[in-house]
């Protein structure tokens, strides 16, 4: 059966190159790329926060709160890692 490469067939080359660039950068310098992806993820979360909070906050605060939520989640996962693998700390 012939494999259809989604990237080649349907997506513009620029996008594919962009993804490859990200992958390459991830290997070289993981932290900035992780932060970048986290902010991308926050683009989904922030509108949800904005919607939930109603009229009380503006878009910028919603974005900041989304980041804060992700940060808290990250810290919580980090502390779980400490709990289960305390030898590394």
């Amino acid at each position: 059966m012939k494999r259809i490469d989604l990237f080649d067939e349907f997506l513009p080359r620029d996008f594919k190159e962009g993804v490859e660039l990200l992958k390459a950068q991830w290997r070289r310098r993981p932290l900035p790329i992780q932060l970048f992806l986290l902010m991308c993820l926050n683009l989904i979360i922030a509108p949800a926060v904005y919607a939930a909070a109603g009229t009380e906050i503006d878009r910028r605060s919603a974005w900041a709160l989304g980041m804060l939520g992700l940060l808290t989640l990250g810290l919580s996962i980090y502390v779980f890692v400490v709990i289960f693998q305390p030898e590394h700390f």
Binding site: T72, L75, S76, V79, F80, V82, I83, P86, F89
Partner: peptide
Amino acid sequence: IALTVLLAVLTQVFL
């Protein structure tokens, strides 16, 4: 190490 776990747990609870 065991104490580190306990401290991490307390941290997690308060977080």
